[in-house]
Design a protein around this nucleic acid. Structure first.
Lengths: 237, 237
DNA sequence: GAGTGGTCTAGACCACGGT
DNA sequence: CCGTGGTCTAGACCACTCG
C-alpha cells in the first residue's frame, strides 16, 4: 500500500536488509516472491532480482526455485580476499621489491606434492625455490613445483630474474585454484632463508592452480614473521 | 561475421575468457564495447553486460565509463572465504561441539582493543573469554570484547551456555566487519587453554564487527595447532 | 561534448524442483 | 503439476569521465 518509490536495486537491497535487521524477516523466514516485491516497490521484477541475487551471493539470502527466497539460517560471513602478485603486494606498500632465485631443478616431486597436484607417479616437475624481499628484508620464501606436462615452456625458463610467480601468471592460463592458509613452525631451512629462528611461527599459504582439470603448479609461500592478511565482509564502508 | 549463437551470458563469459587465455585480448588491452559485442554475439546488450560484470567482480576485467573495458593488468586472485559460526564449523566436520565459558567481566579494554573498536576512552566493555571444543579437544580459544554502548543487552547475558559468538549473531544486527588472519606464537595462557606449548605456532583470526559506524565487538580467535583455512578462486570445479 | 558502462522497464519463455 | 527464480530481449535514459 505504501507505494513509496524504490526505483534502484541498491535502494531495494537496503530496504530488504533493514527488514532483516529489524527481524521483520527473521532468519529462516521465507520472504515474498519477486513478483510481489516488485509490485510493492513499484518497480520491474528484474530490479528486485538484481537486489536479491546480490544478497544471495553475499550469503545473506538463500534462493531456490519453487521454494522461494529465505533469510539464511546460519549467517556465514563471506569475505573476499584479494591475492596479488608478490611484487605488487610489496611495491603497493611503498617498499622496494627484490627477487632472488635460490634453486632450480627437474625432479620427481615428493608424494605430498604429487597428491596435491593429482598427477600420476613418475612425472617430472620443475622445482624452483626463491626469496622475495621487501626493501632488502626477506618477505616471503617461495617453494614451487611446476607440472611440466601442463606447462612445458617453463623448462626453458631460468627464473633468475623473473619469478615463477610472475612468469606463470603472464604465460600459462589458468581457470581456478585452491588456497590454504595456515600457521606453521619455521623449518630449519625456512628460518635460515627468512632470517628468523627455527620453530618461529610463520604464516603459510599453499596454492594449487589448475587449467580445467590439469594441474599447473603447487606453491608453498612462507611469509616472514609479522605477516597477516586483512579483509572485509559486508557492504557498508 | 561468425554469427554463431552465444545466447547465454555464461557462454559469452566462456568465450571472453577464451579470448583472454589465447592472448587474443592480452592483459591491459581494451576489449570492444558492449554494443559491439552484443552485435557480434547476436544477443542483447544486457546479456553481454551480465557476463562482463561478473568477470569484473572476479577481478579479471576492469571497467570504467567512457574508458571502456580492459583486461586486468595485474591479475589478482580473488578468493571468497566463508566464515561460519564456530558451532557449525565443528559439527560440519562430524565432531561433537562443546562450549566452556572461562571468564566474564566489565572492564575498560586495553588501548589495543580501544583502537580497533574506534571508541572513545573511558567506555566500559564486556570482556568474555571462552573455549570451543571439538569432540572434547580444544578447538579455538575466543577472547572477545563487546561494546556495551552498541549492544547494551549483552550485559544481561551470562554466556554460560550460549557463546557470545552465537548470541551476538542472533541478536545484534551488523552491517560489515574487518578480518585479519595471522600466525602467532601461543602465549602462556593460550597454550594452557589449548593444551599445547608456549610459543607453539597458532592460527589467529581477529574480527571487528560493525553496525554502520558503531563498533559492536572485537574478537580474537586463537585456533589449536593444525588449523587451516581452505578456499578457492576462479570458476571451474 | 560525447562515448561508455550502469541501470531500469515490460514482457516473455524456460528450468528446476516442491507438492 | 505449476509456482518460483533464472534468464533473455529490445529499447530507453542516465551518470560518469575521458579527451
Amino acid at each position: 500500500m505504501t507505494e513509496l518509490q524504490f526505483n534502484s536495486w541498491q535502494t531495494i537491497q537496503d530496504e530488504v536488509l533493514r527488514r532483516i535487521h529489524v527481524r521483520d524477516w527473521p532468519p529462516g523466514a521465507v520472504i515474498p516472491n519477486e513478483a510481489d516485491l516488485a509490485k510493492e516497490f513499484g518497480c520491474a521484477r528484474a530490479t528486485v532480482n538484481r537486489a536479491l541475487r546480490a544478497l544471495a551471493e553475499a550469503g545473506i539470502l538463500e534462493r531456490r526455485r519453487k521454494a522461494g527466497t529465505r533469510v539464511a539460517l546460519h549467517p556465514v560471513s563471506r569475505a573476499t580476499v584479494d591475492i596479488p602478485i608478490i611484487r605488487q603486494e610489496i611495491t603497493g606498500r611503498g617498499q622496494a621489491y627484490d627477487y632472488r632465485c635460490m634453486s632450480r631443478s627437474v625432479t620427481r616431486p615428493p608424494s605430498r606434492v604429487i597428491d596435491r597436484l593429482g598427477i600420476q607417479g613418475g612425472v617430472d616437475c620443475l622445482h624452483v625455490t626463491a626469496l622475495h624481499l621487501a626493501s632488502g628484508a626477506p618477505f616471503v620464501f617461495e617453494d614451487r613445483w611446476i607440472n611440466l606436462a601442463t606447462a612445458p615452456d617453463a623448462a626453458e625458463q631460468s627464473f633468475d630474474a623473473l619469478s615463477a610467480n610472475e612468469w606463470l601468471l603472464a604465460n600459462i592460463p589458468y581457470t581456478h585454484g585452491d588456497i590454504r592458509f595456515a600457521a606453521e613452525a619455521a623449518s630449519e631451512h625456512d628460518a635460515t632463508v627468512l632470517e628468523t629462528s627455527h620453530g618461529e611461527p610463520v604464516f603459510v599459504m599453499e596454492r594449487v592452480t589448475w587449467d580445467h582439470d590439469r594441474a599447473i603448479t603447487f606453491a608453498r609461500l612462507c611469509y616472514a614473521p609479522g605477516y597477516g592478511i586483512v579483509t572485509r565482509f559486508g557492504s557498508a564502508p
